[in-house]
């Protein structure tokens, strides 16, 4: 492999990153090649010592997505960070993906529950059609309105809780990546 091939592969693998960041990284490696040449190393030798451009790009990509997740605490960016981290090691499947799916599933189910609560008064209204006793129907409506209130509160609580969970999971992911890489 020649220097240009290495640089091109690296650039292609860094497609998730914004162009400015990508070019900054590329220029670091170009500088590396130039310094190595000064020291009398051949391109082949330098590339062998640098390692696989795919592996290098995966590290940059995982770091980038993690940085984004830390900055905006949103589920989409956390999801991207989780999937980028999967490329770094097989055991991340168990240590990251499984808890991630569990946590997201749990949060999602509570959202569904709060939605269902909010919709129950509609059922009570519809029940007027077949409920013979008006008093009973009004009682049902009353109960379901309380449920709807509880559902709205749950929803508001979930909004805050899920933000906290996303933040917490981002930190967990960061700690996990540090351990995997052993922080030289």
């Amino acid at each position: 492999m020649k220097k240009n091939e290495f640089i091109n592969q690296l650039r292609a693998q860094l497609k998730d990153l914004p162009a400015a960041e990508r070019e900054e990284i590329i220029s670091d490696y170009e500088e590396h090649f130039r310094h190595a040449k000064e020291k009398g190393r051949t391109d082949e030798e330098v590339i062998k010592r640098l390692g696989n451009p795919k592996t290098i790009a995966k590290e940059f990509t995982a770091d980038y997505h993690l940085g984004e997740a830390k900055a905006n605490h949103s589920l989409p960016s956390l999801t991207r960070a989780v999937f980028a981290s999967l490329g770094l090691g097989l055991f991340n499947l168990i240590l990251v993906l499984v808890p991630f799916v569990a946590v997201v599933g749990f949060i999602f189910s509570l959202y569904v529950l709060s939605g269902a609560f909010v919709l129950t008064p509609l059922v009570a209204v519809a029940a007027f059609a077949w409920e013979s006793s008006v008093a009973k129907a009004i009682f049902n409506l009353f109960v379901t309105l309380i449920l709807a209130g509880a559902g709205m509160m749950l929803y508001a609580g979930m909004n805050r809780a899920s933000k906290a969970v996303i933040r917490w999971f981002t930190r967990y992911l960061q700690a996990n990546l540090k351990i995997i890489k052993g922080e030289k």
């Binding site: 390692g51 290098i56 030289k184």
Partner: peptide, 15 residues
Amino acid sequence: IAEGTIYPLLRRLTK
């Protein structure tokens, strides 16, 4: 270690 993986580390520490 693969020398190429030091640059991601430097970038992260800078960030």
